[in-house]
Write a protein that binds this DNA or RNA. Structure first.
Lengths: 304, 304
DNA sequence: TCTCCCGCGAAAATTTCCTTCACGTCATGG
DNA sequence: CCATGACGTGAAGGAAATTTTCGCGGGAGA
């Protein structure tokens, strides 16, 4: 007899390389070897059985299956199917144009091209890896919230500010906290139907986890935007939105691509909420637009 | 007796439908049913086991295997892999239909796709439209500056903050001002060899132009990051970096794409400067990385 | 009507996949 | 310093898939 399985995570088709990168930190050594092989040569691995892949990577079949599970598939068989699909895609599509790292002596034009390409890639990965169910749930919670608190420090703090500005513009009551103490003291005020959002790439930033935990324990709906879906922050999160992790280099800190990824997620949240609250959001948006108009000097003229 | 099969035809990747049609006449009735199902719904069939497909077509497993053989595959397993590949291909083929505007009733998945696509487009436009000569000059000025002041308000204020954080991380003396009064009072301090950067999408934000003008008149090198290369701000700018302007809509304020564009420019500036000051930038970067490690809760499952 | 041939599927045989369990290893805490 | 626990790991056994074998049954030709 067959049972329809109401899975929370539909397996990823093309977002596999991204998923590998995202989940790599939470993998064990052997699993990383398997994941690496899979990401490096999808076509080749698709031709192998569990046993074959286990031998190739010098691990056991159990490890291969475990890796497949971690990547979101029910078992190796399904990973293999996805692999075949991926292989076919990058076969037909243009070559994935391996992005060289940025070197110290790259001419400035190359820097621009590489950065733009990398960020585009990051966007594609993020979009592919984003769980729309979780996103929808988060949107619904935010749209219905009495009040929204957003936590982020460092580079993620700017993303938190960005979300705050956007939500405020459509008339929602939101706050962005970058001071951990104030964040915690404010989190205590949250109740059911309020929403708390934590933004942290590493998923283990204590200054951000702590207020989220408090909010969680006070019954608020909690959302985590993180690049590590298995990280500590997720244990207090009702909804988890995963950002993609691009490989970093010396001249290209992780903060750069994680920011791009986080901003896309934040934009999605915003547009989703704006859709749901269209009746009030639309007038609020145009009102704020109007209000700003007079701060623009029509010609470079003076001012105050 | 078993015959090693010296196949003249390696399995067909995408030409499956054609093959089915070609071989249909030489098939028995049951095999035709199987072939038809396979050609009609590759994705669906790829999800089925031999038994499943046999049941679906009202035939037996043996027949399914026979059909797979006839189509040129060693067995059903390989047919299934090819099917998965085919499905993935024709899935990706229908991607670029996302150019439409975001509507109020778009499902959340569409919102994600459209936003990602738009931002990718913005990045490409920005990279294409960026004047590398101006960029190089700005980089040189920043790398040699005694001090860097950055002006931005509203959404651009966050970009200013981002640049500030980055420059600070590589040991430069930078400030980001969002308070126009403080900005002006600080701009008075600037001298030759100092750099002032104004970030404004409209190019006519008085609060940002004013401090830039003061800096300009005090002999500092001035840079404008704007979407309007002819706007008022440019009359006080030694170097102009143009950001791209994507079309906006009701649900997608201009701030969204201008921010993406501005951030790319800022990243380019940063990497360029980091290259030029590599000797000091590299250690500073790793030092800041080290310093942050302590703020992460250890038990995250992380390595490295 | 009988016979031969071929399509067809049930069930055995085999491969592949998954699960369970026990053994190292490392880190923690006494 | 050793005891203790947690975890990563692979080996072996069990489940499920795939492939093969084999025999039934139906139709065409004689």
């Amino acid at each position: 007899m067959k049972e329809i399985f109401a899975g929370e995570a539909p397996p990823a088709p093309a977002a596999l390389a991204a998923k590998v990168r995202t989940l790599a930190p939470s993998m064990t050594r052997s699993m990383q070897r398997v994941a690496e092989a899979v990401a490096g040569d999808p076509a080749g691995c698709a031709a192998l059985t569990v046993t074959g892949l286990a031998e190739l990577t010098g691990t056991s079949e159990a490890t291969v299956v475990r890796t497949a599970r971690l990547l979101g598939y029910p078992g190796y068989r399904d990973l293999r199917l996805a692999l075949a699909g991926l292989a076919a895609q990058q076969q037909s599509g243009r070559a994935p144009a391996v992005t060289a790292d940025i070197a110290v002596d790259d001419p400035i034009a190359d820097v621009v091209a590489k950065l733009a390409y990398d960020e585009q890639q990051t966007l594609a990965d993020t979009a592919a890896g984003l769980d729309t169910v979780q996103l929808g749930a988060a949107v619904a919670a935010i749209a219905a919230a009495r009040r929204i608190d957003i936590y982020g420090v460092g580079a993620s703090g700017l993303v938190a500010q960005d979300l705050f500005q956007k939500l405020m513009r459509i008339g929602l009551i939101a706050h962005a906290h970058s001071d951990p103490h104030l964040a915690v003291t404010n989190a205590v005020q949250l109740r059911a139907k309020d929403v708390a959002i934590a933004i942290t790439h590493s998923g283990s930033t204590g200054d951000v986890i702590e207020p989220l935990r408090v909010a969680f324990e006070h019954g608020a709906t909690t959302v985590a935007i993180t690049g590590r879906p298995g990280g500590p922050v997720t244990q207090y999160a009702d909804h988890i939105l995963t950002t993609s992790t691009a490989r970093e280099s010396e001249l290209r800190p992780a903060a750069m691509s994680s920011r791009t990824s986080q901003l896309l997620v934040v934009d999605c949240l915003f547009v989703g909420v704006a859709q749901r609250t269209y009746e009030t959001a639309a007038p609020a948006l145009s009102a704020s637009y109007e209000a700003l108009a007079h701060r623009h000097t029509p010609r470079g003229g003076g001012h105050r």
